[in-house]
Write a protein that binds this DNA or RNA. Structure first.
Length: 152
DNA sequence: GCCAACGTTGGC
DNA sequence: GCCAACGTTGGC
């Protein structure tokens, strides 16, 4: 079982939408090869993920979700009406993956990016070193630290 | 809205 | 395969 951090813009699809989605939400639209490779090579059913809100006034980790299925080809890449359509992808040779997740919790004390930068145990976190990656691994130690912080 | 950092495209 | 031009992300 592994830990991840998934980014999203709350104005598009945030923790509220995830909570409202119930048992299963399609986490699609990932269009970055490094993020895709994390899905392909790492993310599996049963993994847990921090939900990170970006592009808002106070970016940070706001909640947690559970991965409920192994990664599979993102249907939106085949949909010409979708903003995530990719005409280089085909059903036979899909280019992008997505995953389904389920809301687990909303943190009483979100970890803002600014606060994370002040936390020594998070110094090596991918979020702080490589800010733009939308699917990124979280180490066991980082996970434990963040949960203790956010649930306090 | 600005801009730095990073990713992608495409000519050669 | 290099690299310049361009596009995107995302904090501020």
């Amino acid at each position: 079982m592994a830990y991840w951090l998934l980014k999203t813009e709350p104005g598009e699809y945030g923790l509220d939408d995830l909570a409202a989605a119930g048992e299963r939400a399609v986490w699609d639209g990932i269009r970055n090869y490094q993020a895709r490779n994390h899905l392909r090579d790492g993310v599996r059913c049963g993994d847990l993920a921090l939900i990170y809100h970006s592009g808002n006034r106070d970016p940070g980790v706001v909640g947690m979700a559970e991965v409920v299925v192994d990664p599979y080809p993102d249907p939106s890449q085949f949909d010409a009406d979708s903003p995530y359509y990719d005409d280089r992808a085909s059903v036979d040779v899909p280019r992008w993956l997505c995953v389904d997740i389920r809301f687990r919790e909303r943190f009483p004390r979100p970890l803002t990016l600014a606060a994370a930068r002040q936390c020594e145990p998070l110094r090596e976190m991918v979020l702080l070193r490589h800010g733009r990656l939308s699917v990124q691994p979280v180490s066991d130690a980082q996970w434990r630290f963040i949960l203790r912080y956010c649930r306090a």
